[in-house]
């Protein structure tokens, strides 16, 4: 233990105080996060149903085998994985861009920017059910607001009931979460010393040059945070799909497959929480691998810009 650490943690019995203070939080984390995650991995090798009274049998890799290789079901699962990845790419890129744009706009010293800042953030606090209900009403064919706008343009769409349903969910997901992305960017922008911009302006930098050479590099922590949060959030998203499109084969994402299999939502099917646990482990691995890859990229970027 270094002298600095001894100073930090004190001497004698006092050195245990930090650990005691940490214990509730660590314990909560172990019980509520680590423990269930390990147990889910365990259940993925069983035929658990979630029903008290039914035995739980070890089935080895059967659930994974069924998920990935058995019959046309594996094709459907692969489709769901691909759809999940497409959703991630679209949401990450577009939400990132929209959030950044909103942050730039509300960061201007313009009249009413505080009002817009609040308005842009409001969807974040609504929750998936309210968000879904609002958009179901907004996208209602047969006289709904968007249907009316389409009518003015001579267009027709079934919106959430048609082949474009997936992309409407992408839109709603972005609408629902871009406010949070904006707040993270905004926080980053407000930490940039005004002197940097002023000095660059004195040197004759244009608006674009200011953004490219001053704001963007200084935003690196916020960029990286948003990048990672958008990837992870979009991979885990499924509730909006449930609320907006419900029972639709062509919009199933991996998170929805987990829910449907685990909770008997596949029409007349059984409770298959062992299989659902296997699917959720697949989703976890997807998040882990993509999250780590993204983290590697953003860490390198951070070193490049900030040293």
């Amino acid at each position: 233990m270094t002298a600095q650490q001894r100073t930090l943690f004190g001497a004698g019995r006092r050195r245990f105080i930090p650990w005691l203070l940490l214990a509730p939080g660590v314990g909560f984390y172990l019980v509520m996060a680590v423990g269930p995650s390990i147990a889910t991995a365990f259940y993925s090798f069983t035929d658990a149903t979630g029903l008290r009274g039914l035995p739980i049998n070890w089935v080895g890799f059967d659930n994974y085998n069924e998920f990935a290789f058995e019959g046309a079901r594996s094709r459907d699962n692969l489709d769901a994985v691909q759809r999940t990845l497409l959703f991630m790419v679209l949401v990450t890129v577009l939400q990132f861009g929209v959030g950044l744009l909103m942050a730039i706009l509300v960061n201007q010293r313009l009249k009413g920017s505080l009002v817009f800042r609040t308005l842009f953030f409001v969807p974040v606090i609504l929750g998936a059910v309210v968000q879904g209900l609002m958009w179901k009403l907004f996208l209602r064919p047969g006289g709904g607001p968007m249907d009316t706008i389409y009518g003015w343009l001579g267009l027709e769409s079934q919106f959430l009931a048609g082949p474009s349903a997936f992309y409407w969910v992408v839109l709603v997901q972005i609408w629902a979460n871009a406010g949070f992305t904006m707040v993270v960017f905004l926080a980053g922008m407000q930490t940039i010393p005004a002197e940097l911009n002023e000095a660059a302006a004195v040197d004759g930098a244009t608006g674009w040059q200011l953004f490219k050479n001053v704001t963007w590099p200084q935003l690196t922590p916020a960029v990286n945070t948003n990048f990672l949060l958008n990837i992870i959030g979009s991979l885990q998203a499924w509730m909006l799909f449930l609320v907006l499109t419900g029972f639709t084969n062509s919009t199933k994402v991996l998170g929805y497959v987990v829910y449907a299999e685990g909770f008997g939502q596949q029409g007349t099917s059984s409770f298959r929480q062992g299989y659902a646990a296997a699917a959720s482990i697949v989703l976890f691995l997807l998040v882990l691998v993509l999250g780590m890859a993204a983290n590697f990229v953003v860490t390198r970027r951070e070193r490049k810009y900030l040293g």
């Binding site: 509520m32 889910t40 979630g50």
Partner: peptide
């Protein structure tokens, strides 16, 4: 969260 939801139910059922 999904992991937690599934697990919580299994744990409740098997506890």
């Amino acid at each position: 969260m999904l992991l937690l939801a599934v697990l919580a139910l299994v744990a409740a059922a098997c506890g």
